[in-house]
Design a protein around this nucleic acid. Sequence first.
DNA 1: ACGGGTAACTTAAACGAATCAGTGCTGCCG
DNA 2: CGGCAGCACTGATTCGTTTAAGTTACCCGT
Lengths: 331, 331
Amino acid sequence: MSDVARKAGVSAAAVSYALSGAPGVSDESRQRILAIAEELGFRPSRIARELRSGTTKAIGLLLADIANPFYTEVAGGVVAAAAEEGYEVFVSHVGVDGSRQSDVAFAQVDRNCSGLIFTSLVAADKPLLDKLRHENIPVVQLYRQIEDEPSDWVGIDDYSASFEMASHVVATGRRKVAILGGPDTSSVSVNRMNGYRDALAKAGLRAVNEPDVWGELTRPAGALRARALFAEHPEIEAVVCGNDMIALGVLDVSREIGKRVPEDLALTGFDDMSFSSAGPLQLSTVTVPRDLMGQRAARMLLQRLAGDKGPARKELLPYGIQVRETTARRV
Amino acid sequence: MSDVARKAGVSAAAVSYALSGAPGVSDESRQRILAIAEELGFRPSRIARELRSGTTKAIGLLLADIANPFYTEVAGGVVAAAAEEGYEVFVSHVGVDGSRQSDVAFAQVDRNCSGLIFTSLVAADKPLLDKLRHENIPVVQLYRQIEDEPSDWVGIDDYSASFEMASHVVATGRRKVAILGGPDTSSVSVNRMNGYRDALAKAGLRAVNEPDVWGELTRPAGALRARALFAEHPEIEAVVCGNDMIALGVLDVSREIGKRVPEDLALTGFDDMSFSSAGPLQLSTVTVPRDLMGQRAARMLLQRLAGDKGPARKELLPYGIQVRETTARRV
DNA sequence: ACGGGTAACTTAAACGAATCAGTGCTGCCG
DNA sequence: CGGCAGCACTGATTCGTTTAAGTTACCCGT
């Protein structure tokens, strides 16, 4: 910076004013300074700027697993919306068990980030959020949320979506329905579960495997549980799943044991991952606006960073019920 | 920091020495200072540290599209390997056209990053890399590489992999083979193409659609090209593709026009994306060690940051040929 | 002609750590 | 008992900006 100042015959302060667009330099000086800065390839040190001003234009995004395609689309939305306001996004992953969540969050704060977006909160993270609030770091809960947490949230109405989906399955004539849900530590999984359960109840039904409905959201876990399920309840006509990965596991086992989908077994997932409609057999599932969700989360956070002190907002986004081949009506 | 110093009855410098583990404070003072720092919840400002020391423990990872599941697994590997050495990873996406690549790279450098990993280099990025070298920013090329670039690279032997795959297809008895490759600006696509082509040549064959083999690596592009291909060459017995997405597009069209896979048409992809083996019809493809590739790239970069000035390294990783249903021998 | 206002600068003081160059003090050796 | 090495610690400076607080110089109205 002082090189530029020297060459332009002004003080370093003048260069700062010129570059920041602040008043205090004449237009001609500004032009000259800008030209010289360009010529010398001068790029101001963000670090020094941030140290001096105490603010950073960066937010943190914490993902359970950076390799999970669901969240990477979310990340895309976050990055895009943040970029619009000149913010950058620091993505890090906390590991599936979430044990490192606290460390990672503070690493983000230490580094740069003036706000954080969480995607994998569980009830045990409450103290972490309290600490962050204490340090005046605004937080947005993306999709998953924890009870009584007074920070912004964005997601979809999982309860209604899964209620609709289970109702659709019932409407196709299946009566013996099993639920394979996600972990009960996730608010999202809990809501989906309740939606399925209530939809069945409304039809006068009960999940054949109740209350053994909780599990992991992975394909192998889905396969494992499906195998046990089919062994114990060979009469099952439909399985509604906590997400697409589980449904995929169920599909694997169905092929293995010769159960035809959708003739012998209806199947629904949740999330509409790209692979759900990839193969010849297309999965009925719920579309979650992943990119939009990321965008909205970023915007909420940016609004807080801009000084909005209002009460916590909870924002619901639209979802879509995708009826595809795996819940085709039996002919 | 001065709060801690005051409470411990020492100077700020002593606190700095204590926290950094440097000599210059007695063990008892160190313990006392550490305890007080802990008690006050003191966390040193990274920004100040970085400004003062001029070094940062962060590297940048530039992805064409942060939502692309191929690269997110790569990112997982990078993050994991970097974390082992206490480094953090700044992930950003440059957009599919790569026009923002230069801006984003310098944004990374401005911010913090002392080294960069590129995943989507094209020949036009050469000046960018030269500039970075001039600023002493070490660079690793991940998978894609550009000619005569004297920086580290890690990837697989695409040529051999696609040669093997095309040979396999020929070995199953198909003679009328078409190639649907990726863009010719990507070194990876070029290598795959050459492998396919040479394998056909070795069998005394020629791609039925030569030289019209280049295109985009997406499902819709694959479908579009497949439609034209089948219209012009209804006799086609096999299509070898630049990646799994293209293969998926071909699969879509095959179903549409009633071509059975693998009976009427053999099909191979490349990358082994999760969805390739998701559906009932499993795609023959090439497995790329995505996570490992990310890890190796990070380690190469970290080694440079540790001061290694040796000549550029090119590291080949193992790949796997996955023969699945779409290239089953005709019965 | 003279004060007042303002535009266009400059100076200097931060920001929060790291680190160099001291400064006492202790202890040991000859 | 003098000298000197080494330890434990402090003060001051530095990193590269931003910005509050000056300092000119000039214009304008009276």
